[in-house]
Nucleic acid binder design. Structure first.
Length: 642
RNA sequence: GCCGAAGUAGCUCAGCUGGUAGAGCUACUGAUUUGUAAUCAGUAGGUCGGGGGUUCGAUUCCCUCCUUCGGCUCCA
């Protein structure tokens, strides 16, 4: 007998060799039906795999991340089985589960998959799923495994086998399909009731550009049809929330073929949001002792050679223009210009820390396939600043920058983000990274200490640092699930040396400053793109490009409407008056769709009482208020950010 | 940059196998003077992404370029 401990601490006894399925069954048949896989002593196992020793187990259902992933992993195998049935001789790469579904990378030779074939493949999968084929786990010796895939002439699986040791190789078999796989899998294909193949894409084998590009098929499956229907509805919802859709509908920005790809044009409402973000940034930076500077958009090649950017980033900068035999580049970053400002006048320790801020416009030649609405563009305006400080001041300065992030995120109600601490890879010193092992170690330790001290949760990632030092990135997700670096906080111990920046310390010696690069409000492009999705276009009042719309019941009240408008304008509020000869219902509908936070309906009563009938976007009628009170209230509401 | 798909009016979209395009919303004009999510009527609006080719004739077929979308790679 073995003792099985469940997550609630209860212990049950079973015959040795009982499976997690048996455990579930002994609790209730309903549970056994819902369970997909099980965590056995911390490892995810097949539900049917015999357990021979005492174990802690957790039964995983659809609601559990790994239960779902087991299901999708098995779905990838089902798709592979269908592919082999439809395209004999197809070569298979890898087929893992992902956050929303699964994919399989396949090699069809010169053949191209059509939409019709994708539909047929989907049907084939459903047909095979209904056959209720069991997923069978088999331990295989390396020699046998190699022989199997040699006979099958599958170079990809053979390459994967090279990295595996004898004794750790398992095959999974279902129906006529056998795959090299670690598992685990659901008990049988019949669990899969709903199938949707989403897209076909190219993907380099093992993620390496130098390798052959395989065909990747993305799909998603569910245990119930209605879950698929809900998922399709969710995709629709996300599309509505996509900043590209909202940006067009709300007239925030546009692109034009003749202007160029990745070069957004800000419409008046977009520009209004930019102004408010800059006002917020300037206020906070002013409060924290930053000073503002302005720098040109271009510079000589020599500047970027000195900064060290050119060898690393030449390909992602716009090609240079040549004037009188000298190459000039559009700036892809503001730091070199700021370093020149630091170095322009002699500095003393009394000047430190020096915080230079600029909403600098940069141009980056992003690969054409990378452009993505406002989130990935070629011209961008960054909430940039460089802090020059002494080693002693570093911790406090770095901490203050982090505090600023947290403050901003609170203002915008940004809760879903992750902090990523990027460090260097020692093997790449001198290549990807500045070759100064001591300073790397020192600064990475400093940053880690600050992070731990601040108590902010973070993940540490090796080999993701900037070439000049470690950094912290704030990661967020777009409506359609793409991950982006929103803001960044970087340490730079290299450029002070390169630019020969120094200050005179208390002992009258020259000393190198440390530099912090920071951009808590990201770039206008990415931040506004993100905010559009974050708020689903419903900007808070202080940030809304159109804060109040005055809607007269009929044009008899236009004069009073103008009076109200002028009064609100006087207080710096963004207000419009709907002068169209439309019915009030139509005016309200159009304003609701524009997502204007406040609507003021005015008619006979309001005019006589010098009042307004207040309506909140999405919330309906809020009742009548005197104009005076309305002004007072709305000014209170926006005061914090003005 | 690579793989795949798409591009028809300002927006959302229709247009069978080649015979030079249509709806709704928007805009404009007129009527209506309206009390909390669409008043009615009329008018205008398109070298069917650009260029080349095949054809008597191309939005439709072919080539090419541009742009966008889904991925991959990249991301200071």
């Amino acid at each position: 007998m073995i003792n099985i401990t469940l997550p609630d601490g209860s212990v049950r006894q079973y015959e040795a060799g009982a499976s997690a399925y048996d455990v579930a069954m002994s609790i209730s048949p309903g549970l056994a039906k819902a369970v997909l896989s099980a965590e056995v002593n911390g490892q995810v196992w097949d539900l049917t795999r015999p357990i021979t020793t005492d174990a802690n187990i957790k039964l995983l259902k659809w609601e559990d991340e790994w239960g779902k992933k087991t299901f999708w992993h098995s779905s990838a195998h089902l798709m592979a089985e269908a592919l082999e049935a439809m395209f004999p001789g197809v070569k298979l790469g890898i087929g893992p589960p992902i956050d929303e579904g699964f994919y399989y990378d396949i090699d069809l030779g010169d053949r191209k998959l059509t939409e019709e074939e994708l539909t047929a493949l989907e049907a084939k999968m459903k047909e095979l799923a209904a056959k209720d084929s069991k997923f069978i786990r088999k331990d295989v010796g390396k020699t046998d495994a190699v022989k199997y895939f040699t006979d099958k002439a599958d170079p990809y699986k053979l390459e994967l086998l090279e990295g595996l040791q004898d004794g750790e190789i398992t095959f999974y078999e279902q129906g006529n399909f056998v795959d090299l796989c670690r598992g685990p899998h659901i008990p049988s294909t019949s669990y899969i009731k709903a199938v949707k193949l989403l897209s076909i894409a190219g993907a380099y084998w093992r993620g390496d550009e130098k390798n052959k590009q395989l065909t990747r098929i993305y799909g998603v499956t569910f245990p119930k049809q209605n879950q698929l229907d809900e998922y399709v509805a969710l995709l629709e919802e996300r599309k509505k929330r996509d900043h590209r859709t909202l940006g067009r509908e709300l007239e925030i920005f546009t692109f034009d073929d003749e202007v160029g790809p990745g070069l957004p044009l800000w419409l008046p409402k977009g520009a209004a949001i930019i102004e408010k973000l800059e006002a917020l940034a300037k206020k906070n930076e002013n409060d924290q002792g930053y000073v503002r500077v302005k720098t040109p958009h271009i510079a000589k090649e020599a500047l970027y050679i000195r900064s060290g950017h050119l060898p690393y980033y030449a390909e992602s900068m716009f090609p240079p223009m040549e004037l009188d035999g000298t190459k000039y580049y559009l700036k892809a970053m503001n730091c070199p210009h700021h370093h020149k400002i630091f170095g322009a006048l002699p500095k003393s320790y009394r000047d430190m820390p020096l915080r230079l801020a600029e909403y600098g416009t940069c141009y980056r030649y992003e690969q054409s396939g990378e452009l993505f609405g406002l989130m990935r563009v070629r011209s961008l305006q960054m909430n940039d600043a460089h802090i020059y400080c002494t080693k002693e001041q570093f911790e406090e300065e770095f901490m203050k920058v982090n505090d600023l992030y947290v403050k901003y995120f609170k203002i915008f109600g940004i809760e879903k983000y992750s902090m990523r601490f990027s460090t260097h890879a020692p093997a790449k010193l001198g290549a990807k990274y500045i070759d100064n092992p001591t300073l790397w170690k020192e600064t990475e330790t400093m940053v880690r200490n600050v992070l731990v001290k601040s108590g902010l949760p973070f993940v540490e990632v090796a080999d993701e640092a900037a070439f000049y030092g470690p950094k912290i990135d704030i990661q967020v997700w777009s409506a359609i699930g793409k991950e982006f670096t929103l803001a960044t906080n970087q340490v730079d111990f290299a450029q002070a040396e390169r630019f020969d920046l120094w200050f005179t310390n208390e002992k009258n010696e020259k000393e190198r400053p440390l530099i912090i690069h920071r951009a808590p409000l990201s770039t206008h492009e990415r931040f506004i793109g993100f905010l559009l999705e974050h708020y689903a276009g419903k900007f808070p009042v202080w940030l809304a490009p159109e804060q109040i719309a005055i809607l007269p019941i009929s044009d008899k009240f236009l004069d009073y409407g103008k009076e109200v408008r002028d009064e609100l304008k006087k207080h710096g509020l963004a207000v419009t008056l709907d002068e169209r000869p439309e019915k009030i219902g139509k005016k309200i509908r159009d304003t609701e769709i524009r997502k204007v936070p406040y609507m003021l309906v005015i008619g006979e009563k309001e005019m006589n009482d010098r009042a307004v009938a207040v309506r909140r976007q999405g919330q309906g009628d809020q009742g009548v208020k005197s104009l005076e009170n309305f002004v007072y209230d709305i000014l209170q509401e926006v005061a914090e950010y003005r």
